[in-house]
Structure formats: C-alpha cells, structure tokens
Design a protein around this nucleic acid. Structure first.
Length: 868
DNA sequence: ACCTCCCGCCATGCT
DNA sequence: AGCATGGCGGGAGGT
C-alpha cells in the first residue's frame, strides 16, 4: 500500500535530510520567511504566507513532495536536489498531485488551496520517513524542524501527527518530539481498533443510523423523534460501549475524556473513524455517518448542526491524512437523497483472527478477536498502548495520573447511567448504574464465559456471529447445529447459549438468541452486547446476569417507538440530554465554551447565534422528520420472538450477505421462503457486521452494502440451531407482519426474486450501491477483492457459502442492497422470557424481545471519486 | 450552492 | 509566565 515505503530502515531524519536537507530546508524556510510577510518566530510561526501571490516555494515544493511521496525514486531525486529550488515556480494547482513539479509552475502565484492541503502536506511529511524504519536508528521527529522544512505552521503538523499517533505510527517522546514508528505497528493497532469496534458494536450503530435515515427518508413528513432518540438511546446504551471503545484505544483517550480537552481530540476521532471502516462490511463510511456516530459518542445529544459541521471538518482533516497513508480513499455514496461524501477503506484487511491477519507483520498482540474479546478492555488498552514495547502513546509522562483518572472516569462512567434510559428510567437507571459499574467485571466474566463456552460449543447456539465477519466460517445455513464449531470463531465466540443475532460485535443492541428454552424455541432478545453476553449463561456457567440496562430498553425503543410510547421516545432524549455529567463532559463543556467564547469573539457570537438558530431549526426538522417507526409499532412489546422464525429472516439476511459477497452461493435452505423456514444459519454467516452486502434472491431484499454493514443482521442463524418448532409464538406472524409492514416483503409475497432495483418494491429502502471509484475499475476491483477475500475466508472456514453470487444478480451497482433484519422487541415486562433466561434480569420491565425487522434497504451508489 | 477544508484565533495545559 | 498543543469554526477556494 504504500507508495513510498521502500525505504525501510532509513532513519527518518536522515531521510528528511536526504529529501530535504534540514539545513537546506531551513535555509529555504528562512528564505521563505523573508519572503513571507509575517513570519513568525519559530515558535509558532503562524501564517507565514498568505501572500496571495505566491508562495515562493510552496507549490512546487508541495508537488515535489507529493511526487516524491508517490514514488520513492522521485523522492530520492528530490532529496538530492533542493526541493526548494523551485520556490518560485508554481505548479498547477490542479494537478498538483499528479503533475510534477516539472516545470512550470509558476503561475499561480497562489499556491492554491490544494497545494496547501493537509493531504499534500501529509504526503510530504510521510515522504520524509520510511514506512518501516529501522528501530535501531534514531527516528525522532522534531515538530519544529518538520514544520520549518515543510514550511507550514506547526499547527498543521499537529494535525498530521495526531492522526499518525492515533495509528501508532508515531509516538510522542517529549515536547515537540515524536518518534517515528512507521507502519510497524499499524496492523496491530488496526486489529485492536477493529476488535474494539466490534465490541462496541459500531456496526450496529452504523446500522441504526442508517435505519433512521431510511425511516426519515421514508416518511419525511412524519415527525419523529426516533431519530434523535434512537441515536441518543444508542448512545446511551452504546454510549457505554462506545465510550469503552474510545477508552481502549488509548488509555489516554479515556483519560482524555476526563481531561476535558482531549476527549474530542483528533486522535480519538481518528481512531474511531478508522474503526468504523474496520467494522463495516463494505468498508465504506460516509462522513455523515461517521460524524453522527462521533457526535453521539461525544454525548452531543443534539445533533447540533454546527457541531455536526465541525465534526465533518475534522473528519476531512483526518481523512486527508488517512488518504495520504493510503488507508482510505474518497468515494461518493449515492442514495436516493443524493450523493454523499464517503471514504472507502483501502488499507490492509484486518482480520480479527490472528491467523487470518496475515497482514500485520507483527501480531504480537492478541489481535485475534477472541483474544481481543476475551481480553478485557484493559487488555485492549494495553495492546494499544503498550504495543510492542514501544513507547506508550500516552502523551505525558503523567501517564500514571491518567491511569488513575481513567479509573476514576470509568467509575464515573460506569456509575453514571451511560445512557439515560428512557423507559423505565427509574428502573433502568438503577439497573444501569450498577450495571455499568460492573462492566469491567462483566467483561471479565464474559471472558470467562467465553472461554468456557469456547471449550464447549453449545448446541443451542447455532449461530455465532463472527464478529468480524468475514472471517468466519459460515456454517451452511441449512445446518443449524453444525455451525457450532464454526461459531466458535474466535472473535465471535459468545457465550453459549446466547448468540447475538446481530453481528455481535457491532450492534449496540445485540439481539441475543436465547438458547432453547424449555419450550424448545429459541428466542431472540435484543440486548446490548454486554448484556447479551452476560445474559446467556453458558450452560455450564452460571449466567452472569446482567440486568439489562435500561439502555437495552432504549435500544429497543429506538427501533420501536411503537411500543410506544412517545413518551418513551421522548424520555430517552431527555434522558440523554440529561446525562450525567461524567459522560457528557464534552458536550457540556463545549456548550459552555461556546457560550463563553461567543462574547469574547465576534465569531463566537455569530457562531452561537447561528448555532442556536440553525440548530434549533434543524432539530425541529429532525424531530419532525421521523415518523414513528412502523416497525416498532408493529411489534407487540413484550414478546419474545421465537428464533425459528427469526432465523428465517436471518437466513435471508444471511443469504443476502452471501450474495453480496457475490461469491457466496446460497445453497441454503434459506432461499426457501422466509416463512417457510427454518433456516439454519450459522452464526458465522451472520457475522453481520462484516457482510458484504448481499442480496437475497429469494427474498429479493436488497440490502445496500452500507446498510448491511450497519445492519445487524439478525441472524437468525441462531435460530437455525434451535428448533424446528415454530413455536406458537406470535413471532412468526409478527415477523411476517413486520416484514410486510416494512415493505420488505410484499404482503402476498414473501419472497420475490427480483434482483436489484426490482427489489425495491420489496424493500422500499433498497439502495443501489454503486461504487464508482475514481478509478472505477480499480475501486470495484477492490471491492471485489474484498468480497472475494471475504469469501475465501469464509470458505476457508469451511463455510458453506456457495458462491452464489450468481443467484443474485448484483443489483445495478456492484453492491446490492440486502435485506436486513433487525430485531426489536421489547418485552414489556419482562415477561416472557423464554425460559429462565437470564434475560429477566434485564429490567424486568424492559425486556426486549426480539423481533425481526427488516431494515429498509437502500441503494447506495458509491462512486469513487477522487476528484474534486 | 454546496463541498472541502485552510487558516489561525485562542483555550488548555504542560514546563 | 511562557510556550506547546490543539479545539474550533469562519470563510474562501473548488466544483
């Protein structure tokens, strides 16, 4: 991937010298300084340039840098000769990247913005250092020097370094000094991030967001809070997980949360952003989604427009750096609504399994999902930070302090209701608190359980989601039981009885399948991940019960406002808003800041006013937007849905996924009418998160890849395992009903086979995804690759995907939409939990039973554009 | 008109 | 106190 990297083992600074001899550069800079009007002292040279006209060397230099970055050879050349020679020359701005410095360049006096872009700057920066530096050598980076050499303000360097630091490509040594690690740790960190993302159910979050969007699209006019509430609820629920996520990546991060300033740090955002790619199947993440997720995590309840915009800005900054690293590439996702900027992961495929992950040269850590999962958060943190003996990233020597603070944070967080729970607030709250506080313990417990479970595959569980998805083996759908072994996919392994329908890792609310209940039917319960794990007690093990947090309820609520209580929906919001400060530090602070600032600055005032106005307006819109979810309403609260039926759905989803992958062949019975049957799906198949988008021919549901990723497919797989008995549950009826309702299935039809667009009818929301990379060919190729790889992996696993890509014609665009199933059910009072599943623990009141909802699908078109 | 995102003010927080 | 960091968002270049 990387262009430049051949230079292994160069010393960075040497390289820098070579490239641009520091001294020379310095000289150059000096020159520049002279030229430039305001040149600040080295300390923080702010804006040296601004001359409209040109900046002397910048353009050229930039081009060169780019070029050099692109090709090492060129770089070398450049290094040899002074980069700055051309200071005067301006290259075409337009071509900058591609064009060389060759020539002419003089023209535009202005370096054009592009030439000053962070991406370009990053390329230059990267060009200075080898991808795989020789550890033995001194790889220190002096920010001042770099800033000078690159002739940019230090501020810009911070942006780059922060992102690099988030990827462990550099670590901070001291003030103004960083150590270059290059890509040695990259895979590891990516693995860690992925596992964290899975644990935090990012995929699920994404799914939910998409879902909301769909809904909104759907019923534009209807006002509904769901969106916000959902989000919030997720946040709340997820918040916890999410937070964890953030935490892990860096202890610092966590600490950061405590420390006011860092919580919003670019580093954290960067890690989260990267994580989103790693957990989404299509590996395409739109800025909008990313921003929303990040916003939530920040506890910004209100998707304030301004905040959102800020987030977007930051994401662009990060994206530019990541693009320079060749980890992502810009694409556009086209939906009904329009085209949205998005980025596609082009970095190494990260497989949770160590074995799989060949990518990372170094996998010292338990990159594997299992390990990761097993490992508690703390472990993760360790991995991240302590990686390989490298210096921890903790910025400060005061790491210890951080740790302490972190712990305290954790407590706070735990104690604090991560997400206010909407329903049953009282109950939930109560529950939640303890719950959270116990998260760590739970993690440990889960671990234990997992271990045990892993040792004994449980019969009941048919499905386990491969967390990561692809990797895992998919058991043939037909064979429910068979799956077990496979299920054990490291990452996904879950406690026995419980199988998360959704790709476990991702979805915030994890549908959990209750192992067979006495009744014989399995039920799926929508739980939060943590809960889910805890909930299902491994057979042998005592179930760790986790009272479901209210958060769980929240989840269900989101999806199901229906049960509705509007009040509920509202409640969540309010609750969210009211979140305990510990969680909310960020937002609150911001708000305060903003307010404070406003007076101070003109801008501030403007901003504030703008914010309020726009924000309020927007909010209104949003609120109004969402109509109540049909789905929610549909489901009777309080019912647990028998897995069997669910399985059906899940199967569909699965299939779809398979199809998406293109290679997969749905051999499975799945194809049979959804209703019909029980589809044994292996959980692995389900690995919801990872799925490539699939189309299910039979059902015709198309799921957009994107959506797929997001959607936790419920995998009914779990179902499969269970019983043939369709239990008397209302579930089947419900499911169908739901589907019909959702429009996924036409009432009369359960499955239709129209591929692509045709499917639309079936699923209203189908999105056609077309990915058009800039290099369309290339991109698609990439996409294809991914899929293929995935498939191969799956196959490897022994999954039975039959490559059925054929079966379903891919939707128009390469990526088809897929049907997604979600489960939402809340059981109102807990009531019906199937057997004494631990579920009861959840709030009694708030159980969510699983229902499966199909998520509307959309077509997404991704056009890779590079362009701009 | 919207998308990108550069620029640099200024808050934070370390030294 | 001074300086390093880096959040933040105005507003301009690009398309």
């Amino acid at each position: 991937m990387e262009n430049e990297k051949e230079n292994l083992f160069f010393e960075p600074h040497k390289r820098g010298l070579m490239k641009t001899p520091l001294k020379e550069s310095t000289a150059a800079n000096i020159v520049l300084a002279d030229i430039q009007p305001d040149f600040g002292p080295l300390t923080t040279p702010t804006k040296p340039k601004e001359i409209s006209q040109g900046e002397p060397w910048t353009p050229t230099a930039n081009l060169k840098m780019l070029i050099s970055a692109v090709s090492p050879e060129i770089r070398n050349r450049d290094q040899k000769r002074g980069l700055f020679d051309n200071r005067n020359g301006l290259s075409d701005v337009k071509d900058c990247l591609h064009e060389h410095f060759s020539g002419d360049e003089y023209e535009k006096s202005q370096p054009s913005r592009k030439e000053k872009s962070l991406g370009l700057l990053c390329h230059k920066f990267l060009a200075r250092y080898p991808n795989y530096p020789n550890p033995a050598v001194n790889n220190d980076i002096c920010l001042d020097e770099v800033a000078e050499e690159l002739n940019v303000e230090r501020r810009r360097i911070y942006d780059i370094v922060n992102v690099l630091e988030s990827l462990h490509m550099v670590s901070r040594l001291a003030k103004n000094r960083y150590t270059w690690h290059g890509r040695h740790n990259l895979n590891q960190i990516l693995e860690t991030l992925k596992s964290v993302g899975e644990e935090n159910k990012y995929a699920e979050q994404i799914m939910m967001i998409k879902k909301k969007e769909y809904e909104q699209e759907f019923e534009v006019s209807k006002s509904y809070n769901t969106e916000d509430p959902i989000i919030k609820s997720n946040t709340g629920q997820n918040g916890h997980p999410v937070m964890c996520c953030a935490e892990r990546p860096g202890v610092e991060l966590r600490a950061a949360s405590v420390n006011s300033r860092k919580d919003k740090s670019l580093k954290v955002m960067s890690q989260k952003f990267v994580t989103l790619f790693l957990v989404s199947t299509p590996q395409i993440v739109s800025l909008e989604i990313a921003a929303k997720i990040l916003t939530w995590e920040d506890h910004v309840e209100d998707l304030d427009r301004s905040k959102f915009k800020t987030k977007i800005r930051r994401l662009y900054d990060i994206a530019n750096v990541l693009s320079s690293l060749d980890l992502i590439k810009k694409v556009h996702v086209t939906e009904e609504r329009g085209r949205k900027p998005a980025f596609k992961w082009t970095g190494p495929e990260i497989s949770p399994n160590p074995s799989v992950s060949g990518l990372s040269p170094v996998l010292p850590c338990a990159a594997s999902d299992l390990e990761a999962r097993q490992s508690s958060k703390e472990n993760c943190a360790k991995n991240l930070f302590s990686t390989r003996g490298k210096p921890n990233f903790t910025r400060h020597p005061s790491l210890i302090k951080l740790v302490k603070s972190i712990e305290s944070d954790r407590r706070k967080i735990n104690s604090a209701p991560s997400s206010p729970i909407k329903t049953h607030k009282a109950e939930s709250t109560q529950n939640s608190v303890p719950f959270r506080s116990k998260m760590a313990q739970l993690a440990a417990i889960c671990k234990m359980q997992l271990e045990e479970q892993s040792s004994e595959p449980r019969k009941n569980v048919t499905v386990q989601l491969a967390g990561s998805g692809h990797c895992k083996s998919v058991a043939p759908l037909d064979t429910p039981a068979n799956a077990e072994p496979e299920m054990m996919a490291p990452s996904l392994i879950q406690p026995l009885g419980v199988v998360p329908l959704l790709p476990s890792p991702l979805s915030p609310a994890v549908p959990v399948i209750l192992p067979q209940t006495p009744s014989g039917t399995s039920y799926a319960i929508y739980l939060q991940p943590a809960q889910a794990q805890t909930i299902t007690p491994p057979p042998g093990l005592s179930p760790t019960v986790c009272p479901t947090t209210s958060s769980n309820a929240m989840i269900s609520e989101d999806s199901t406002d229906a049960t509705g209580e509007n009040a509920d929906s509202d409640a969540p919001k309010s609750s969210v808003s009211t979140r305990p400060g510990s969680l909310l530090p960020g937002p609150e602070r911001q708000g305060a800041k903003n307010r404070e600032r406003e007076p101070a600055r003109e801008k501030g005032s403007k901003r504030a006013s703008m914010l309020e106005d726009s924000g309020s307006k927007k909010k209104f819109k949003e609120d109004q937007k969402a109509p109540e979810n049909v789905s929610t309403t549909l489901f009777p609260s309080g019912y647990l849905i028998p897995l069997t039926q669910c399985s059906t759905l899940g199967a569909e989803s699965i299939l779809s996924s398979n199809e998406n992958s293109g290679t997969l062949s749905p051999n499975h019975s799945i194809y049979s009418s959804p209703i019909a049957g029980v589809i044994p799906v292996t959980s692995s198949e389900l690995t919801a998160v990872n799925f490539p988008s699939f189309q299910v021919t039979p059902l015709k549901l198309m799921v957009s890849p994107t959506s797929m990723a997001a959607v936790p497919v419920g995998n009914s797989p779990a179902l499969s395992s269970s019983h043939p008995l369709p239990i008397q549950n209302p579930s089947s009826a419900i499911v169908n009903f739901t589907l019909q309702h959702l429009g996924l299935i036409s009432p009369g039809v359960q499955v239709s086979t129209s591929p692509g667009p045709g499917t639309i009818a079936v699923s209203p929301r189908i999105e056609a995804v077309s990915v058009t990379p800039e290099n369309a060919g290339a991109e698609q190729g990439r996409a294809t690759k991914c899929d293929a790889s995935i498939l191969s992996q799956n196959q490897t696993n022994g999954q039975s995907f039959a490559g059925t890509g054929a079966q379903q014609p891919v939707p128009v665009t390469p990526k088809g939409s897929q049907p997604v199933a979600e489960s939402f059910f809340r059981t109102p009072g807990g009531p019906t939990k199937p057997t004494g599943s631990p579920c009861t623990d959840f709030d009694g009141a708030n159980y969510t039973s699983v229902g499966t909802l199909l998520v509307p699908q959309r077509k997404l078109e991704v056009s890779a554009e590079d362009v701009h």
